[in-house]
Amino acid sequence: MFHFSNLVRSKGDPKIISTGPSSLTSADRLARGLGWFSIALGTLELLAPHRVTHALGMHGREGLVRAYGVRELLAGVMTLSVEKKAGLWGRVAGDGLDMVTLLGEVRPSNPRAGTVLAALVMVGGVTMLDYIAAKDVAAQHDPRRGRKRLYSDRSGFPKGLTAARSAALPRPTNSPATT
């Protein structure tokens, strides 16, 4: 990507020769992948619900699939944002809802019951990834990490606070009486 952006740089601007370690953690990268997965699945559910209901033998429930698509898109946008922790926990909750819905479709009268079972296994796997990512993101970005220090001795005024306050007072002028 940076090769394209070099087009707008001037001749003397530094340009990347090789890249080094990133500020993104492994959990951040997993969250990003899950966010894009959420966007893709949500788009499919919203725009082509018939494909989903047909594959799972859920005819007539296209409205529900569309609603789930909206939910996926919201969770995806949030997971790709700075608030990824909330997005990931939202995805975990959504996975639960998906599993409950799929379990209701595992019935002898459903000719696609096998596909539903496969979908359940897949959702289970994704749920594990969501849960791991949510926990790791929360842990890695926890503000309680590291040493806790107060800075009660850091006034910034080498001569003390009283002297700092008096710095604002008008300076006495030298009059003949005082010199």
């Binding site: 940076f2 990347i16 090789s18 890249t19 500020s23």
Partner: peptide, 12 residues
């Protein structure tokens, strides 16, 4: 390099 992605790179 992108959102939340700062790297210590070698540049010219």
């Amino acid at each position: 390099h992108g959102k939340e992605d700062i790297r210590c790179d070698t540049v010219s």
